[in-house]
């Protein structure tokens, strides 16, 4: 099902051979294959269509250099466009404020709690004093989960097991952080669906109250077509600053990365690459582009073009 795109393109590209210009007619098949590769990678169908339309526009009428295969040239255009779409200027996490507050948000099971611990670990290694806050008052053993991770990392976890009000808990935690000279407060929250009015209201109240310097939307790299709806709905409510893409140690092609980027203009700041606390990485748009296209060899292919 997921053959390498370059293999799939071979047939389509044959129609381009011998021609010295990319035209509407000879490029149609290739564009179709590219669109299909994007769909197989779970890029949202509307995003995929807009994207291939713009690639076609860029490609049309371009002169094919003698030395280069026309197919390769097209793939290069696609790859460059993808990279650019997901890239732009690299933005770091904003840790202004005393303490700086980082708020997590996302669907159930996307990896918020794990990522909270990973980020705490990452910042601790930069000699920051970090406090983790357990604001998921719903999921069974959510507090214990964060506490266990905190213990592993030797990072304090603030929790109020009897309190069912996350906004209050978070406010108290910030007070506590100020008194104890913590520099960064990372607030883990419960997973929620974008259609759950009450829960969306809760996260937006958390954001209002805490005024975090950084709000991160945590999303599973395996997410399908719904990624755009969810990303948009969360953005409408809490205007998050960045996206975290988790579980990239799997073999999902991760089209969600492109889809989200197309509907909300927010950078992907970190990726999760495993279950352990050290499995955090910064986001590389070019690697993501080859991953979405399903071609490990895209870089060498492109270098020749």
């Amino acid at each position: 099902m997921f053959e390498n795109l370059s293999e799939k393109l071979e047939g389509a590209i044959r129609t381009l051979k011998g021609s010295n210009r990319i035209t509407e007619v000879n490029v149609a098949n290739t564009i179709k294959e590219i669109r299909r590769a994007l769909l197989d990678a779970d890029v949202n169908y509307k995003v995929a269509k807009d994207f291939t339309d713009s690639v076609k526009e860029k490609a049309l009428g371009q002169k094919i250099q003698i030395a280069v295969e026309p197919g390769q040239m097209l793939v290069k255009i696609v790859y460059d466009e993808l990279t650019q779409l997901m890239g732009g200027t690299k933005q770091d996490i904003n840790l202004s404020g005393n303490p700086a507050i980082v708020l997590m948000a996302g669907l159930q099971g996307s990896g918020k709690t794990t990522f909270s611990a990973k980020l705490a670990h990452y910042l601790k290694k930069q000699n920051k004093r970090v406090l983790l806050v357990a604001c998921d008052v719903y999921r069974p053993a959510a507090i214990e989960q964060l506490k266990t991770l905190g213990q592993q990392l030797d990072i304090e976890v603030y929790s109020e097991p009897e309190n069912k009000n996350p906004v209050e808990i978070a406010q108290h935690a910030v007070e506590y952080a100020k008194q104890n000279k913590y520099q960064v407060v990372i607030v883990d929250t419960a997973g929620r669906l974008a259609v759950d009015e009450e829960m969306m209201d809760e996260i937006s109240r958390l954001k209002e109250t805490l005024q975090p310097s950084e709000t991160l939307f945590v999303v599973d790299a395996m997410t399908g077509q719904d990624a755009v709806n969810t990303a948009k709905a969360f953005y409408d409510r809490i205007q998050y600053d960045g996206v975290v893409l988790t579980k990239l140690d799997g073999d999902a092609r991760g089209g969600a990365a492109l889809s989200i980027r197309a509907v909300v203009d927010r950078p992907i700041k970190f990726i999760g690459t495993g279950e352990k606390v050290g499995d955090l990485d910064v986001f590389h748009p070019d690697r993501m582009a080859s991953r979405i296209l399903g071609m490990g060899d895209v870089v060498s292919l492109v270098e020749r073009a």
Partner: peptide
Amino acid sequence: LDGSTGQNAVI
């Protein structure tokens, strides 16, 4: 399987 998972669910 998570209902929000895309084509990776096949694998």
